[in-house]
């Protein structure tokens, strides 16, 4: 459980960082409707994630344990790493700075939403055989 939580909270910290950066860098003058659509989806995903993180913390305080597979948060971290490296790698080939970064940050957040829901579903009652 401890290992899972460490990776999970690292993932959460990265998401907060990514969101801060993507909000700062994503241009808002897109003339296409798709931009507005994605922005709305983005907000929903953000609020949903914040709500789930709060619920998870509350449940942890109430001594619930997590019975999830550690492979999910690790896969998420690897995924985020690939996306961030890819975005920085190709950033010098675009005119609008960090445009890929702003776009892929959303997809990373959707992945994080799945991880959050998984973590929530992995919450088990009681503290039977607490993880070493």
């Amino acid at each position: 459980m401890k290992k899972y939580l460490i990776f999970y909270f690292i993932a959460s910290a990265i998401i907060v960082l990514l969101f801060g950066l993507s909000f700062c860098s994503f241009p808002s003058d897109s003339i296409f409707d798709e931009g507005i659509f994605f922005e709305n989806i983005n907000k929903v995903a953000l609020y949903l994630n914040v709500a789930i993180i709060i619920i998870i913390i509350v449940l942890l305080i109430k001594k619930r344990r997590i019975d999830g597979k550690i492979v999910f948060p690790i896969a998420f971290l690897v995924f985020t790493g690939f996306i961030v490296i890819g975005c920085f790698l190709f950033n010098d080939r675009v005119i609008v700075p960090y445009v890929h970064f702003g776009y892929y940050a959303r997809l990373v957040v959707y992945g994080f939403t799945l991880l959050n829901i998984y973590t929530l579903l992995s919450m088990e009652k009681g503290d039977k055989n607490e993880e070493k």
């Binding site: 999910f72 896969a75 890819g86 992945g111 799945l114 991880l115 579903l121």
Partner: peptide, 23 residues
């Protein structure tokens, strides 16, 4: 939970592949 795990990892793999494919 297992279903969600598969979907999640599948989703991440697909996004990474799409990204590098588009480049």
């Amino acid at each position: 939970r297992n279903c969600l795990l598969t979907i999640g990892i599948g989703y991440m793999v697909v996004i990474v592949l799409l990204m590098f494919n588009s480049y």
